[in-house]
């Protein structure tokens, strides 16, 4: 019973999920939209509680057992509690019951710590910092990838060299045909390979979905039994 009910739910909703693709009638489309927006939103809201519970349990255990770098877990837990309080009671833009905006007397300076301000000034720059690391990682990865160790790697090196050179305005003005060759590399062999991958991925997705709907693939249930 522990397995049959989830399998039955998956079968019913899997079939229901495929039907709106073929039936454009409003009754079916509205029901589908209702499931996708309202019902899924409720499930996601519940899952958030599980996620927060996991964070608290994980870091509490780390502190309790004094594992390596356990002190940082305090930072995580305190940040979690503070941002939850500010978000829940301070409103998104300082419009909640908790005051999150202070105007300093005799100056025009306003100090804000509402959730939007915290997000824009802490989360966004931190995310941008991590993202900017990508440039350096790309350089080191390109250095490894472009070593001509075998025929395939040599072709890759040559193609990359042509595409990169063609992107330089000075080079493309001296060798105008290089741009056409670069364009050909991108639109013919590159696109052909991507489309081939696309077919495989689409069929793989369909087969996996079918296996899940029919209950053949049960790995997501925690096993095959």
């Amino acid at each position: 019973m522990k397995r049959r009910i989830p399998l039955l739910i998956v079968f019913v909703f899997g079939v229901l999920g495929a039907i709106p693709f073929l039936i454009p009638h409003r009754i079916i489309q509205d029901a589908d939209n209702e499931f996708r927006s309202s019902v899924l939103r409720i499930i996601v809201a519940f899952s958030l509680v599980l996620g927060v519970g996991s964070i608290i349990r994980h870091h509490y255990e780390k502190i309790r057992r004094k594992r390596e770098n356990w002190q940082y877990s305090y930072v995580t837990l305190i940040s979690l509690v503070i941002s939850a309080i500010i978000g829940l009671f301070g409103g998104i833009e300082a419009n909640g019951i908790l005051p999150t905006r202070f105007v300093f007397p005799f100056t025009n300076y306003t100090f804000r710590f509402d959730i939007q301000t915290l997000y824009t000034n802490i989360m966004v720059p931190l995310g941008a910092t991590m993202f900017s690391l990508l440039a350096f990682f790309m350089t080191s990865a390109a250095y490894r990838a472009f070593r001509a160790r075998n025929i395939e790697a040599t072709i890759l090196l040559f193609s990359a060299f042509v595409v990169m050179l063609a992107a330089v305005p000075l080079v493309s003005s001296i060798f105008p045909k290089l741009s056409f060759f670069s364009e050909w590399i991108l639109t013919v062999p590159n696109t052909a390979a991507k489309r081939g991958l696309g077919f495989g991925i689409a069929l793989g997705s369909m087969a996996t979905s079918l296996k899940i709907i029919l209950g053949i693939e049960r790995g997501w249930l925690g096993g095959t039994g």
Binding site: L50, G51, V52, S54, I55, R57, H58, E61, M123, L126, G127, A128, T129, M130, F131, G219, W220, L221, G222, G223, G225
Partner: peptide
């Protein structure tokens, strides 16, 4: 999935619930 895998090979005692955890939904974090 991990818990069930440990049970299937007869090692439910070896499963550490703390080994699977939620970190954050922020991509770069």
């Amino acid at each position: 999935v991990v818990k069930e895998a440990y049970t299937q090979v007869g090692r439910p005692d070896a499963f550490n619930p703390d080994s699977v955890y939620f970190v954050t939904d922020s991509q770069f974090a």
